[in-house]
Simulated assay, not measured.
Amino acid sequence: MNKVTLHRGKDKAAWQLHPWVFSGAIAQVHGQVDNGAVVEVFNADDEFIAFGVYNSRSRVAVRLLEWNPQRQIDADWWRDRLRRSVGLRNHLLHADNTTIRLVFAEADFLPGLIVDKYGDFISIQVHSSGTERVKAILVDELVALLSPKGIYERSDLKSREHEGLPDTNGLLYGEMPPAFVDVIENGILYQINIVEGQKSGFYCDQRDNRALTALYAKGQRVLDCFCYSGGFTLNALKQGAAAVTSVDSSALAIDTLLQNMTRNGFDSSEHRAVQSDVNKYLRQLGEAGEKFDLIVLDPPKYAPSRSALEKASRAYKDLNRRGLMLLESGGLLATFSCSGAMDIDTFKQVIAWAALDAGREIQFIRQFNQPEDHPIRASFPEGEYLKGLLVRVV
């Protein structure tokens, strides 16, 4: 077995079950270890800590897998982990919900692996060299467990570059997904694009938050910014919103949203779709003196790392300032950040600054989180990335 020894004093996180060993913590790699190979990790006193997979090109040099020295990291180990992850989510699949995340990487003890179920199809992303080596085993087990029509890979990720892996997209099993795959979430029909859509095809991490936000939409004028395929829009219309305006810069997103409107039989006279840069459109709305009762701001990741947090905070503040200025007194802002580098307390402070600049007094009345199929492992707090606030203008 390949062996890695850590520097003295650099083993605390590994003993505490954190799954990442950074390159600076490694004192010695014994022998020639291929990237993606399984290694045994020891402390400076030559005590076994855990098994992991090694990659010399990555800042995360070892991704730890198993702390029990009696367990062998073989095909059966990977299959068992995958079965456990899928089994914990079976109750989330039912007639009103046919799309969930089956595997959430380190949170499910499967580093670098994302698996999403979209109706009869599965979309996977592979972020790490160790998981890349066993991809065929994992695909085989997914077929045995779920009998999907097809499994499609969307591994076109910046993280693969850091692992020394090329981007790869393509069919891994069965049928090629059609241009639009039918799924149901919160009882609402969606047609989503697995092959060309954003990320793995759909943002199922907002499932609960869409439903919760829509509870405030009845009879209200709603503005859904960064609407993508219409999750917040469709939930608001289902709950009786008086009018909804949906904004996204992507033509594909707007086209998909309009198809989803038709699929659900919603009245198009209550809806306006706008293809535009969101910040530009918010400025235009402000200049026109438009007002709304409920605004949703669900932007892309502004802070991919802690080094980008200061710049991202300014972007979040400016975006939310513009949103708050468009709300009626008593109006609500549902605002989100999917940047793991920004914690909830920092996000609250940014929104408070935005309110101050907008000249609005606000109350925080609800916090939003990621759903249970995106669990947060106690030893890996970095897995908590999605947070949101429901803000009332008073």
Rank of each mutant, 00 (worst) to 15 (best):
V41R: 04
E40L: 12
R63E: 06
A105D: 10
L93Q: 05
A61K: 05
Q72W: 09
L102C: 07
Q28A: 10
E40N: 14
V39A: 08
F48Y: 09
N68T: 13
V38I: 12
N55W: 03
V33W: 03
A50W: 01
V33I: 10
G36Y: 02
G31C: 06
H91N: 09
T99P: 00
E66Y: 14
N97D: 01
R57P: 05
R79L: 09
F51V: 02
F48N: 05
Q70R: 14
V62W: 05
P69V: 12
H30M: 01
N43R: 08
F51H: 13
A50D: 01
G36P: 00
I100C: 02
I49R: 02
L93S: 05
R63Q: 11
R63F: 07
S56R: 11
S56I: 01
W67R: 14
R81S: 07
E47K: 12
R83N: 11
L88Y: 12
V86N: 11
V33G: 03
D108T: 03
N97C: 08
I100Q: 01
D96N: 09
Q32S: 04
G31T: 04
G36C: 02
A61C: 09
W77D: 14
A95E: 13
Q70F: 12
R59L: 15
V53W: 00
R84M: 13
R57D: 08
N97M: 02
P69A: 14
Y54S: 00
R79G: 11
L65M: 11
D46E: 13
E47L: 06
V62M: 06
G52M: 00
A105I: 10
W67M: 14
G36A: 05
V39W: 05
N68P: 14
V39L: 06
G87P: 00
H30L: 04
S56Q: 09
V53R: 00
V86R: 11
V103K: 07
D108S: 04
L93M: 11
T98V: 02
Q28I: 03
R83P: 08
T99V: 06
H30Q: 09
D80N: 15
F104P: 01
N43F: 07
I73N: 07
R71N: 14
T98E: 02
D96G: 06
V29Q: 03
A75G: 13
D46T: 08
A37D: 14
G52W: 00
V29C: 06
S58H: 10
V29R: 05
A61H: 08
